[in-house]
């Protein structure tokens, strides 16, 4: 089975003697979308970084048969000395493209995330938080990844914009068969995009629930999403997992 899709087994990790992840097993089929849900501090970002190869776990193994994994980080992490266009082009620095081609691609991708000519020439400190997030998304999509790792990629955007960006990722992923892993604490985001969601809980983080959303993503209308959220939120394990954050 290995060789096709992302497979992680027995992932265990900690920082400074604090266990963050404990024996996490995952499998994401090629072209599928997995959401990692959980309260803050459950180790979602750590898990994502391990899956993407930025972090080596203390124990466990990740089988990652992808050529171009790409991240959208929780912070936009844009180069402050490059314009929006320059930042997107920077993501393409590893590709055999001319300077002009890189910038042309960057411009196209920025338009796709709704940033026009005038925003493309601005520096990060001249952009709003939501614009920066979209530049980071454009930077990731511009490299045409086969594995896309999203860490709260839509969280700083207002509702309408976040839906639009989710749509963009979904279409792009479907079109090119991208495997997507997204970290979120927003249940509706998971229900809209994911084929499967795992719920991390506690410290150290363990998978306490696996949810499957069978209806194809493009057929999920608002009514379906709402009903699905209600169904999931009613589950005992979910309530338990999110309780620490709910009670503060």
């Amino acid at each position: 089975m290995s060789g096709d899709g992302l497979v992680a087994s027995g992932l265990t990790h900690g920082f400074a003697d604090v266990a963050v992840l404990d024996g996490v097993d995952l499998r994401v089929a090629r072209g599928a979308v997995l959401a990692i849900l959980g309260p803050s501090g459950a180790g979602k970002t750590t898990l994502l970084n391990i899956l993407g190869g930025l972090l080596v776990p203390e124990a466990g193994h990740v089988d990652r048969p992808f050529v171009r994994p790409t991240f959208v980080f929780q912070d936009p992490l844009l180069l402050p000395w490059r314009t929006a266009r320059g930042n997107v082009a920077f993501g393409l620095a590893g590709k055999r493209l001319s300077h002009a081609e890189r910038h042309a691609r960057a411009r196209t991708m920025l338009v796709k995330v709704g940033l026009g000519q005038s925003e493309a020439g601005r520096y990060p400190h001249q952009l709003s938080g939501g614009m920066k997030k979209r530049v980071a998304l454009a930077r990731a999509l511009a490299v045409e990844p086969d594995l896309l790792l999203l860490d709260e990629a839509f969280s700083a955007l207002d509702v309408g914009l976040s839906r639009e960006m989710q749509q963009l990722v979904r279409l792009d992923a479907q079109e090119r068969g991208v495997t997507v892993v997204l970290v979120t604490h927003d249940l509706s985001e998971a229900v809209r995009l994911a084929d499967e969601a795992v719920v991390l809980s506690g410290r150290p983080g363990q998978i306490v629930a696996r949810l499957f959303i069978d209806r194809p993503a493009r057929l999920r209308d608002d009514a379906f999403v709402e009903a699905e959220i209600r169904r999931i939120a009613a589950l005992e394990v979910i309530r338990d997992a999110f309780r620490p954050t709910l009670s503060g």
């Binding site: 994994p69 790409t70 991240f71 980080f73 920077f90 620095a93 590893g94």
Partner: peptide, 19 residues
Amino acid sequence: GLRTMARAFRVPAGAMIVD
């Protein structure tokens, strides 16, 4: 964070230094 980002995008050493 920027270093991690550059690593994630597998940016070559030259671009890492210059950018």
